[in-house]
């Protein structure tokens, strides 16, 4: 079973093709042209390199966020349309899971932190379990200060990974028991996306293209303002 994975939830554009043999081809670019310009040519590139026809793909996996809204929508719209045209199901994977997955061999508590801009971060806590990671908390949106107090409350040694952990690295390193993940692990890995999605696909944990939704975790500003106005 071959899976095409698409990730555009952060400033990085990534895609990969893989299956039970692992990742056959992958691409990522963290700088340069915009997501919508890069993504589809990159998909075409990796499938040619791997000598795969799109008709051989059995499922489309996509990073559903949380992340930067505009990028996220480019990946999800592309993934949905591919799934529809190829008549295959979809697998949605969280960006925070994807950032935590490559550091699963640590004994520390893992906190995956993605920069949400405007002084906020998306984050979730994870622990190593046999064969992978387990998410211990809800995926949240909060300020770095809120994240710090949650880390303190957990009272454990923590490994913080993701572009949010790097951006607020100084603040986080002030907490004595926090180590910061390296820059190479800052963004979701398209390879991990295919691996995690393949595991879900084997268990037939699919969604249809019309059911898959982005995980925004933040309402549109206008709706927040509207609710505040309605309440007062």
């Amino acid at each position: 079973m071959l899976i095409l994975g698409i990730d555009t939830a952060t400033p990085q554009v990534g895609c990969a093709i893989g299956g039970h043999e692992g990742v056959l081809a992958s691409f990522h670019s963290a700088k340069g042209r915009r997501h919508a310009e890069t993504l589809v040519p990159a998909i075409d590139f990796i499938r040619r390199q791997a000598r795969i026809e799109l008709s051989e793909i059995s499922a489309i996996a996509v990073d559903v966020g949380p992340g930067l809204f505009t990028g996220l929508r480019v990946g999800i719209a592309t993934a949905k349309a591919l799934a529809m045209a190829l008549r295959v199901p979809m697998v949605g994977v969280s960006s925070l899971d994807l950032v935590a997955f490559p550091v699963r061999w640590t004994n520390r508590l893992i906190v995956s932190v993605i920069d949400a801009r405007r002084g906020e971060v998306f984050y979730g806590f994870y622990r190593q379990v046999p064969g992978g990671i387990q998410r211990l908390s809800d995926q949240c949106l909060g300020t770095p200060e809120e994240l710090c107090s949650e880390i303190i409350a957990r009272g454990e040694e923590v490994l913080a990974v993701g572009d949010g952990a790097l951006r607020y690295g100084e603040q986080l390193s002030d907490l004595i028991r926090v180590e910061i993940g390296e820059t190479g692990l800052a963004y979701p890995s398209p390879g991990s996306l295919v691996q995690l999605a393949h595991a879900q696909a084997v268990r037939e944990q699919f969604v249809n293209s019309w059911e898959l939704e982005p995980l925004y975790l933040r309402k549109a500003d206008v709706e927040i303002n509207w609710e505040t106005r309605e309440r007062t």
Partner: peptide, 19 residues
């Protein structure tokens, strides 16, 4: 609107690639 245009453009490219 840039965000709106991007959704249609992304979907259209995917369809053109798949077909």
């Amino acid at each position: 609107l840039v965000g709106s245009l991007l959704v249609g453009m992304s979907a259209a490219k995917a369809l053109a690639l798949a077909w």
